[in-house]
C-alpha cells in the first residue's frame, strides 16, 4: 500500500510538471499541403525581453505578414537543458514541419547530429555562422557590435561622471560582440571615459546582474548597458538609482521608461522571410545570415519617453550611417 502511495504521488508530480513545462502553444494539426509550418526551440522564456523574445516577436511579425492561415508556428521555450531541446527538435522533425529553428548556439551539436537524419526537413540555428556544410541547415547570427557601437557613442555623449558600466553575461557570441562594440563606441567618442566591464558567468543570474549594477554605480557609473535575460536585475537597479540604460536584443523601455535611452533590436524577420521563400522554392539550407544595420535586421529603437537631446541623437545617427556605408570601422568581429 505504501509503495502504491509513493507511485501515485510521483505520477501526479510528473503529470503536473509536464503540463507546466509543456509547449507554449498547442501544436497545429498536421497537413501535407497548406500553411508553412515552423517549430522553434528557445533556451529561455519567450517573454524574456531579450534573446528568445526577439525570435518570438519575429515569428509574430511574419505571421502577420503572411496571414495565420499561411504561416503557423509552435514554440517550446525555456529549453535551457540541451538534452531536452535536442529531443524536442527530433520530435518536431519527425512531425510535419517545414522548418525547425534551434534558437541557441548551444543547440549546434544536437542539430549537427539530427539534421542528416531528416534530409527533407529544413533546419535553422543561431546565433552561429556555421551550417556544418549540411544542405538542410541555415545559420544566422547578429553583428551586435554595430548597435553596441552606436549605443557606446550615445552613452559617451550623455556621460558626465567619466565612468560607464557594462554588465555582461558570458564572454562569448553576440554578447561579447555587443560589449566590445559598445566599448569601442565609447572610446571613439571620448577616450577619457573609463568603461568598466564585468561578466557574471551566466545568462540568467538576475541576482548577480543586480549586484554587479550596484557595484558599477558604486564605482561612479552614470550610464550602463548589459546583455542577456538577466539584465532585468540590472535595469531594476538603474531605475532605482536614476542611472541611464542602453538595452540590446529586445526593447526594454517598458521596464524603466524614465532611464532607458535606446535599445538595439534584433529583427529576425529579415532572416526568416528569406528562409521561408527559399524553402518554398526547394532550397532547404546551406546559407548563413547575419543581422546588420545595413539589412535592417538590427535597429536602434529610441525610447520616446526619454528626452534625448537632438545633437546627441545626431551623433548616434551619424555613427549608424557610417557603419552602414563603411566609413566607420568598429574594430570588432571584422567590422
Amino acid at each position: 500500500m505504501k509503495k502504491f502511495g509513493k507511485l501515485v504521488v510521483l505520477l501526479v508530480l510528473v503529470a503536473i510538471l509536464s503540463t507546466a513545462c509543456g509547449a507554449a502553444e498547442p501544436a497545429a494539426p498536421a497537413a501535407s499541403t497548406g500553411p508553412f509550418k515552423v517549430a522553434v526551440v528557445t533556451p529561455s522564456a519567450i517573454n524574456d525581453l531579450a534573446f528568445s523574445q526577439s525570435m518570438y516577436d519575429a515569428l509574430l511579425a511574419i505571421q502577420a505578414e503572411m496571414g495565420a492561415e499561411n504561416f503557423e508556428f509552435v514554440v517550446s521555450d525555456s529549453m535551457f537543458v540541451v538534452d531536452d531541446a535536442s529531443s524536442a527538435i527530433r520530435d518536431y522533425a519527425s512531425q510535419d514541419y517545414n522548418l525547425i529553428v534551434a534558437h541557441g548556439s548551444q543547440y549546434g551539436a544536437a542539430l549537427q547530429e539530427i539534421a542528416p537524419d531528416f534530409p527533407g526537413v529544413s533546419f535553422a540555428w543561431g546565433t552561429a555562422g556555421d551550417t556544418f556544410n549540411l544542405p538542410n541547415v541555415f545559420a544566422y547570427e547578429a553583428f551586435s557590435q554595430e548597435g553596441g557601437y552606436v549605443s557606446g557613442v550615445l552613452a559617451a555623449a550623455l556621460n558626465k561622471s567619466g565612468v560607464i558600466g557594462v554588465v555582461g553575461p558570458v564572454e562569448v557570441g553576440d554578447a561579447k560582440l555587443y560589449v566590445d562594440g559598445f566599448v569601442a563606441g565609447v572610446n571613439a567618442t571620448n577616450a577619457d571615459i573609463t568603461v568598466n566591464v564585468n561578466y557574471t558567468g551566466s545568462f540568467s543570474d538576475v541576482a548577480l546582474a543586480s549586484e554587479a549594477a550596484q557595484t558599477h554605480i558604486g564605482a561612479g557609473a552614470d550610464v550602463m548597458t548589459g546583455s542577456a535575460q538577466m539584465v532585468v536585475g540590472a535595469v531594476g537597479v538603474a531605475k532605482e538609482k536614476g542611472v541611464l540604460w542602453f538595452g540590446t536584443q529586445a526593447d526594454q523601455a517598458s521596464l524603466a521608461p524614465d532611464i532607458v535611452v535606446a535599445c538595439q533590436i534584433y529583427d529576425w524577420a529579415v532572416v526568416l522571410r528569406d528562409i521561408v521563400s527559399l524553402v518554398n522554392e526547394g532550397t532547404l539550407g546551406g546559407k548563413a545570415y547575419a543581422l546588420s544595420l545595413e539589412n535592417e535586421g538590427l535597429k536602434m529603437v529610441y525610447n520616446p519617453g526619454f528626452d534625448l537631446p537632438a545633437d546627441v541623437k545626431a551623433l548616434g545617427d551619424a555613427a549608424a550611417k557610417g557603419i552602414v556605408d563603411g566609413t566607420v570601422t568598429i574594430g570588432v568581429g571584422g567590422k
Partner: peptide, 11 residues
Amino acid sequence: LLNVFQFNLTN
C-alpha cells in the same frame, strides 16, 4: 532585492 520576476529567477 531585485523587484522583478522572470522564469527561473533564483537560478
